[in-house]
Design a binder for these strands. Sequence first.
DNA 1: AGTATATATGTAATCGATTTCAAGATATTC
DNA 2: GAATATCTTGAAATCGATTACATATATACT
Lengths: 329, 329
Amino acid sequence: MANITIKDVARIAGVSSASVSRYLNNGYLSEEKREAVKKAIEETGFVPSRQARLLRAGETHSIGVIIPKIDSEGISRIVLGITEVLSEAGYDVLLGNTGVNSDKELEYLNIFSRGNVDGIIYLASWLTPKHKRILKRSSYPVIVIGQKCDEVTCVYHDEEGAAKALTDLILKRGRHDPACIGISEKDQAMGAARIRGFRASVKEHGLTIREENIITCADDSMEEGCQKAKVLFDNDPGIDALYCASDYIAAGAMKVLKERGIRVPDQISVCGMGNTRISRVISPSLTTAQYYYKTSGEEAARLLLEDLKKKTLKKSIQLEYEIIENEST
Amino acid sequence: MANITIKDVARIAGVSSASVSRYLNNGYLSEEKREAVKKAIEETGFVPSRQARLLRAGETHSIGVIIPKIDSEGISRIVLGITEVLSEAGYDVLLGNTGVNSDKELEYLNIFSRGNVDGIIYLASWLTPKHKRILKRSSYPVIVIGQKCDEVTCVYHDEEGAAKALTDLILKRGRHDPACIGISEKDQAMGAARIRGFRASVKEHGLTIREENIITCADDSMEEGCQKAKVLFDNDPGIDALYCASDYIAAGAMKVLKERGIRVPDQISVCGMGNTRISRVISPSLTTAQYYYKTSGEEAARLLLEDLKKKTLKKSIQLEYEIIENEST
DNA sequence: AGTATATATGTAATCGATTTCAAGATATTC
DNA sequence: GAATATCTTGAAATCGATTACATATATACT
């Protein structure tokens, strides 16, 4: 029952442990000894210790994944993609859950970058200059998911394109008084980029927007959606096209519309973003955009593996989106 | 830039590497040296190598967490609880994401048993005899979350109690023709136990149920909820109380009710289970039960840490629930 | 006082593999 | 046939931590 080590195999095969190692790693070894070792390994059922190998080789075969919070549909699908690819490649996934706590992000970034992992995948919501500095200094490959970042390799979504395409949809039927409930512009991806997309579409349609009709939420929740929608419609009851930067925000807004007897999509078109499960639960069902979250996790993992094999150049991968047109437009 | 090892720390602190190790493992060490080592570690940012520790001590300071799928609100909150407690205690969390693939569960169970972890937390949906056998044979501590399991220590919810309490609610107002859309009884927790709770309440109210009015879904989704609701109401349009084993199933069922012009809660009371975000998004908002998912993760992690310190006896912890009464009852 | 007992610390062995080094055997080249 | 390149092999160093052992000091208990 005791573990069989390379020494046991060596003894049984009548060779040195170095030769057994050579057998395992295809080093120089005569045909005779090769046979003897093979036989000994089969007899004993020897399996080399991973830790010993890794210790000597200076590798950990594990990857740190830092996520801001795990209870989000998008994030968990990304993690799914990451784990699938990495475990397939024989890597362990170490999870760093930072919660809402921003200090913890840096803490994990530090813990990980100091030697327990071969690489890091960082799911960022906000990327401050401070973050970027740490990322850049890291001696291990880092892949950022979700934000475009010139400093390191990243995988992100075409937020602007998707937002523009959605806004195009809600501006059909001759709508002319659009509004936007966005997310804090501090968040480059879900915040700033989506609002840019909204603006671009509005401009292309030859419309002008009242700046008060662009409003941002502190976080992505239904409650915020409710609240901001009230502000918007109190201020301008004539809004006939509402772009919301997330499905939950849209759900909140639609609740307010229902309360006020504004009919969707007769009087107003609404869209969300993310294609979360609630987009089909609410009624009328919500037009939204689908991202390939799982794919982005997979891509990031693959990029990392590639980086690990040979230092490659920085890359950015932008993933596509898909518009899901439902009843709300 | 080179990695800092225990020797570097020892040199800087002016002690032997053994003393640094003692500091890390709470061995005998004078207050003075303890301070010196602490300072040196802070200065250098030293993080002990997992592989070296494992190789020598046979400990990894990491815990494997096996989850069936991560894209579920409940599961991700459990993981949140687990990671919080474990990282506080200096343990790393290794994530094993099995997807829907059942073989992969066993695979991960094996990967982890190759000696990469000190213990396992297993988030089980189904617990087949095969699973139980493997779990029982495991050479390190295993905690199961979500299912009651006599073979190993587990943390689970009072599914039966919650289901009964919810059924009590939908049977108010003199309802007399109840129905139940459950989840496959192969799932002990979300399946069998909840249906038992439903039955218990119905019986207590002195009602009899037509067996055709108890129906189960293959998985927890809105689509299944729709489909099963249609079957139920085609068969018995007089149903005036509908227990659904999950919020998503309930959302599907309510969609069907709306299509058929059956008013909730005037003509029928409906409840879901889980207190997911959609329970407040749909209209009328859904009466549901809240579980303490995060708490269950925390509890499981604590039990595991306890087990790790000294082999303790098997335990089962049953966590409470809370009924959230909304508009649908 | 004298003997346990607990605390404190460094040296060196150890975990199980890989890899360098040195040396001997073979094969190849001019 | 001498010089050089290519194989083949084992002994020993190495990776970075933990820990057995030896030793020294302080504290407690008859």
